[in-house]
Every structure is written in structure tokens, then in C-alpha cells.
Design a protein around this nucleic acid. Sequence first.
DNA 1: ATGAAAGCGCTAACAA
DNA 2: TTGTTAGCGCTTTCAT
Lengths: 346, 346
Amino acid sequence: MTLRDVAERAGVHPGTASRALNPETQDLVSEATVRKVQHAAKVLAYRPNPMARGLKTNRSTMVAIVVPDLSNPLFPPIVRGAEVELSRAGYTSIIADTDNEAGRELAAFAALRARQVDGLLVASARRDDPAIAELFEQGVPAVLINRRSDGVALPAVTGDDERGIELAIAHLRELGHTAIAHLSGPRELSTGLSRQRTFRQVIAETGCDTSPDLVVECETYSVEAGAEGMHELLERARPTAVLAGNDQIAVGAIDALRERGLRCPEDVSVVGFNDMPFVDKLSPPLTTVRVPHAEVGAEAARILVRWMTRGEAASATTALPVELVVRGSTGRAPVRTAQAVSNTSG
Amino acid sequence: MTLRDVAERAGVHPGTASRALNPETQDLVSEATVRKVQHAAKVLAYRPNPMARGLKTNRSTMVAIVVPDLSNPLFPPIVRGAEVELSRAGYTSIIADTDNEAGRELAAFAALRARQVDGLLVASARRDDPAIAELFEQGVPAVLINRRSDGVALPAVTGDDERGIELAIAHLRELGHTAIAHLSGPRELSTGLSRQRTFRQVIAETGCDTSPDLVVECETYSVEAGAEGMHELLERARPTAVLAGNDQIAVGAIDALRERGLRCPEDVSVVGFNDMPFVDKLSPPLTTVRVPHAEVGAEAARILVRWMTRGEAASATTALPVELVVRGSTGRAPVRTAQAVSNTSG
DNA sequence: ATGAAAGCGCTAACAA
DNA sequence: TTGTTAGCGCTTTCAT
């Protein structure tokens, strides 16, 4: 079924049929012909050929969503939120998984651009990311998700990391904790850096123990790195509470505590970040900062669509509100350990 | 950069340049010209326009992967496995999420076919699925993943459900269980039906308690349905072990046990199916049947590629080997409860 | 308001 | 072995 068939059946010229079928140009055609053509199209079950259209218009109505690891439960909700919004706007999404490798990201961008995607949603950004810098310089419509990239004026949509850290620390303070540690994510990622910075600042402002030993940076956002980080932390300090850079690190931290015979939350409280699926089923159920991931994806998609359609190359950064979800991994500070720590570091 | 530019720079006709760049037709051209053209292409950073090519060849080198719910941790590894294999064969994958709705599946198929995908990988099949029947009748290359569809001779790649059930029951029998229940998945899905059937058969063969009260069918493969099913089961019988239709149901079952003050595995052992990420972090860590999901996706992709390229419309069914992963949710049958059950149902 | 015609970038018969 | 030519299905300027 081509446009020619529709035009023939409606008794009009293919050009006219094209105008009648396209909402943008529909008003250049008489109402009667529009109806005729639409009817013919319906009868013939006509589906426009996106390749022919794309070849002519130089647009593909396809958008790429680039994630660092689709198997990380964090990303499917983001992808979902974005997809819904994109398909509503008539775009098809292609998902690319970079496997957390800079090289693959570069390759993915190239392949996607070759596919003529109209825009990109990128959740795999590192702070130092030449591939993204290039994207930016080329002026390709692209919106960053979750992670930002240094020195690149691309719009970004994230959860409100600062607020999340504030909420978590306030919660721990209310429970009487003063020796609060941070198992930070890698500083090469904007989330790792900004959460770590905010942590240090808020801790200082609230008059908690500011010993540098209480901040350990994990190499990756993984369970293994979290466990490793926790072991290192416990060799240097005796915190009564740990704020993890994300949920995976928190899970690893709890594993490490268990290995050392420490109980969570009786001996050490742990707070995560993200509220991934299933962290409420862990033992103990994880207290964590909930980021509205689907909404993050959806908002990023909306910004991208606006850019692609109206040419508005926004560069603003959007931080969506987060909330603290209190579950079983946090409890009152143990009096004895707390004293021991303040002695140690005082 | 178009093929014309490359041809001009190499001093040949565009047709020749096309032949020189395409591996399939490269041998129709002298080696010297191939080198000239390839060099020119490299210098100009030429990228063929897939739309122009597709318009001409009527192929898109795109494949759709249709999943019922991307947020279900089961699917990302499948998608990943498939994507790797597809991109190796030069295909780009488009992922569609049907949200577990038949209507959305139909819409997705239509949209995807309009996009001219060359083939589909479908993980969202129901046993009675007109959309898939239509796909089949149209002769579109498509491979089913995990779930099959009744009366449709489409190739399917799954885990070996029968073997999985056998392994699980054998394990429970070794632990002394005879009152083994099944919290089955929905019978509208091939996995639900086949696991349920195998369960009944193996239970009968091994001389266990075959009371029909010991099989409860859950409405969906979800934590909530699993909990509901477990409550229903406990009102009818007193099993010492439960074989769940999948991991989500198992998680729900453990929740329900806890609500009723029953311990797992001391009072009731629970076995899951799939070995989703993070089930090893649950409390207790879940004993489950591991399905090689990435390999399932990869194998399905390979079959699809063969079909698309060589036109081999296979229809065979492939069941990949599974293994039992024993963790903390299964233990020896409690002597007292076991007796109570055999009294009740005897 | 509609028709005519050209052309997007590529491939594939056919010719030479 | 290479050049020529036509055309995939659509949009869009220009004419009418």
C-alpha cells in the first residue's frame, strides 16, 4: 500500500493525498478531499513508509536512549517513562546499552547517528566524556539523564541529589547519629561527586563528625564495590550510620557488616539512594531516597521532543523532587558505639 | 557525505562505489577500485544512509524485541543477549514494552511493522494470542522467547521448564519433603501451564502427595499474586514445601508465610524459578532454578538472523539447559508438620 | 485547492 | 569490470 494507491482510490494526485494525510499540511486541502483521502487510506489500511518519508525529510522520528547497563534495575523505569512520552509524540525509541564502557558509548553514538536518530537521551554520561562533548558540539538534540557531564551545556534531568542527601542526614540525626559515614559513588560520575560534596557540606553544617576517614569512595556503583568500601571504612572508623552512594553500594555495605558480625540497624544504620525495585524485600528492608525514575525519563523526553520539534535548544538542568523512604535498615544510634567514635575522632 | 561524493573523489561512478563498499558485491569490482573507493570513503568519513538503502532494498536491518515488562528483572538479560548477537549481525534492535496488555502488543506489532522491521523477537506471547497468530500467517520472521503460543509454528527458545521442575522436586524430596505444593503461574501463559503440568506428573511419579489442594494457580507472575496464592494455599493444606511458578511468586509466598508467623525454611521450604538478579540477597536467599536468560536471548537472535538472511523459516523449539541453585530458602522437612499434612490429606 | 515534477541517497538490472 | 539508468515512496516547490 503506497500513497499512490491511496491517491488513485480517492481520485486525487499523490501530492494532494500526502497533504491530506499530514496534519501539518492538512489545511492546504479542502475538507472534502481530506475526508475522501482519509477514507481511502483507512480502507486500504495504508501505512506511510517511514523510510521514504525520512529520506525526503531528513528526519527519522527515532530517538536513541543510551543507558550504561540495562540490567541495572535503575534504568528500566527511566526507559519506560521516556518511551511512553516519546511514543506519544510519535517517536520510536532505540535503546543502546554501553555496558559501562566509554568505547562502547562512542561506538553507540556513531551507530545511532548513522541510523539518523533525531535525538538522544543519554544516561551513560561520565563527567569527562569526550563522546558527549562531541555530541554537544555537533548540535545534536540530546538530553542527559541522571548523570551530567562537565563543561557541556546540554540539558539534564536528574533527581534532586542535594535534597536527598539532606533528607537522609536529617533522618539519621533524628535517630541520634553523629558519626555518619559516606560510602560515595565514583567521583568520575556527577552523581558520585555531587552527593559526596553535599554530604560533606551538610555534615559540617549540622555539627557532625567531619573526620575525613568517614568518607570512602567506592570504585563503582556495585554491590561488590560497596562491600569493599565498607570493609575499608570499618578499618578506619567506627561509624554508627552509613549513607551509601546508591542502593547497590548499600546492599554491599550490609553484606560487609554481616561478614564482620555487625548488625544492621542495631549496630550500624544504612541508607541507600534510588529506591530500586526489591530493596524493600531485603533483610533488613532498605531505608533509601526515592528518585522518581519514570518521571525523570518522561521529563527528559519532553525536553528532547520540544528541542527536536520547536528547535528550542534548552540547556537548563532539572532536578526532580525526591523523598526519603524509611524502612528497616535505619534505627536509633547505639549509645556505646557512638561514644567510642566521638572519643576516637574527638 | 553521500555515495556520490565518495564516487567523485575516487573517480568512479556511484554505482561502482556502491558495489565496492558492499561486501556482498565487492567481488564484482577490481581490487584496485575497491581500495580507491574504500580510501575515499574513509577520508570523507562516509556513512551510508540506511533510509535510502532501505527504501531501495525494502529492508531496514532493524529487529524488534517485544517484552511484556522491561521492569521485570527477567527481561533485561534476555534483551542484552539478543542485542549483542543482533548487532554482531548488523541489526539494530528496537525494544517495545507491551505492559502486559494484549492491546498494546497488537499496537506494538503494527507500529513495528510500519517501521519495516525485518524481524521480531517476541517475549510477550500468550497461549491464545491472535496478534502472534497474525504475525505467523503473514510469514514475518519472528522467534518466540520464553513463552510459546498455541497452534503457531513459530520457533521458540526457552529454558528447559520440565527439567527445572524435575530438579526442584528432586531437591525437595532429598530434603525429605512429600507434601510439596505448587504456586503455579497463570495457565494462559505457556510457562504456567507447562510447569504446572510437569509438576503434577513428576509429583505423581515420585509418590508424593497428589492432593489437588496442593496446586494453586496465581493470577499473574507477581509478588502480590504470589502472596495471595500462598494465603489461599495455606487455608486448604499444610505443605512443607512450595515450588513457585517463578521468583516473584516465591517472594510473595515468603511474605505470606511471614505474615502468618511461619518461618522459611524451618516450617516451609520455598523454591523459585528463573534466578532473577538480587534473589540471592533476600532473606532467606532464594533457592531457585537458574535459566540462562542471556543465552536464551542470544540463541533466539541467532535463529532469527538465520531466518532473515538465509530465509530458513525454522519452527523448531529450543529448550536451553537449566540448573538448580540451592540457597537458604529450602531445608529439611519438619517432621511434625509433614505428619500433620499426610493426616489431613490422606 | 490541486496537479506536475523533481529529487532525497541508494541499489540493481541492463548495457557496454 | 564498469557505466548507465530507473526507481524505491514520499514531500515539496512551483505552476495552474
